[in-house]
């Protein structure tokens, strides 16, 4: 009874700190559920970054110019960095990277479904940077002020790097749209494939997102899925128009009364099906990660063994 009261008051104190916008730091007391939710959210985000390397990594060896090759490689490398910053943030909560990776590899942990779609043409490098990184930025900028300190700091670093990603993607689209008809067709075809999946990146509708309320209360989420989705459409439809492209949604029309774009309904069956593992690339993406991990195991062991031998030699010498 006494402990319960104590915990209750701790909970209240904790919430009061959050409400006062005081950042929570690793060794501070926090409710178990807060810790668990954060580990889930941060590791899921980290997994998305590293699985997200694969669809674009797919085109590094085929980039059409040396400049594009260098830019794309630097961009995909950044995503590895993002994954690393985020795993580090989750590690401050007591999760180990090994365990998080094990959860990814076993299918227990999720990552963003967008990366289960294939990259089929060079224009996909444009669309991924412009739309997918664009959507990621919308999701991530508010997280720079999220309540957990290490997560917020990791997101500041990530967001600084993301705007380069979006711009290089947009520049690819611009170049295609100003190019030959075959390039413009390539751009439109890619937009047709990526538009709806990027809208899905914001997650299920608010009415079907049971965790949103608690996450907003804890300030580990600062806008709802639907709010962000609307923002994204409002940003992107004019950008598509600027490029001379059409988003594949007849309902995407400016609504003067709402001062926002109306848009059609996402195919939620497709969304849930890909989340459940039935997207075209789910299997390949996961297998690529598992393979890299398993084939890397001997390298990690060798480095540890050598470090131990060297330390022993130095101890003898000293």
């Amino acid at each position: 009874m006494e402990t319960l009261e104590k915990d209750l008051s701790r909970d209240d104190q904790f919430q009061a700190r959050i409400d006062a916008d005081v950042r929570i730091e690793p060794k501070d007391w926090m409710p178990d559920a807060y810790r668990k939710t954060l580990i889930r959210q941060i590791s899921q985000h980290a997994h998305s970054e590293i699985v997200g390397m694969l669809p674009e990594g797919n085109w590094i060896t085929r980039a059409p110019s040396l400049k594009r090759k260098a830019i794309l490689l630097a961009k995909v490398q950044d995503e590895a960095g993002h994954g690393l910053y985020l795993y580090s943030a989750a590690e401050t909560l007591g999760a180990s990277r090994d365990q998080m990776l094990a959860d990814l590899h076993s299918g227990k942990a999720k990552y963003s479904s967008i990366f289960n779609y294939p990259t089929l043409s060079w224009a996909d490098m444009g669309c991924v940077g412009w739309l997918v990184d664009g959507a990621a930025i919308l999701n991530q900028v508010p997280l720079c002020r999220t309540s957990y300190g290490p997560y917020a700091r990791a997101m500041v670093r990530v967001c600084k790097e993301e705007s380069f990603h979006q711009r290089q993607g947009f520049e690819i689209m611009q170049t295609l749209c100003a190019g030959a008809p075959v390039q413009k067709e390539m751009a439109q075809e890619a937009l047709n494939r990526w538009w709806w999946p990027t809208l899905m990146m914001f997650g299920p509708k608010d009415s079907e997102s049971p965790n949103t309320e608690q996450s907003m209360k804890w300030r580990i989420k600062r806008f709802t899925n639907d709010e962000l989705r609307q923002k994204f459409v409002d940003m992107m439809v004019p950008q598509a128009e600027f490029l001379g492209l059409t988003v594949p949604d007849e309902k995407a029309q400016w609504n003067e009364a709402r001062q926002a774009y109306d848009f059609g309904e996402v195919d939620w069956n497709e969304f849930w099906s890909v989340v459940k593992g039935n997207g075209l690339c789910n299997h390949d993406r996961l297998q690529a990660r598992v393979q890299a991990h398993e084939e890397g195991a001997w390298v990690l062991e060798a480095a540890l063994a050598h470090a131990a031998k060297r330390a022993a030699r130095e101890a003898v010498a000293a």
Binding site: Q99, A102, S106, E294
Partner: peptide, 18 residues
């Protein structure tokens, strides 16, 4: 590669120190 929830090799003992 075989992989899945029960694959022991998934959990390596070789994580480098932080």
């Amino acid at each position: 590669t075989n992989w899945g929830p029960n694959n022991k090799s998934i959990m390596s003992q070789s994580e480098w120190p932080l």
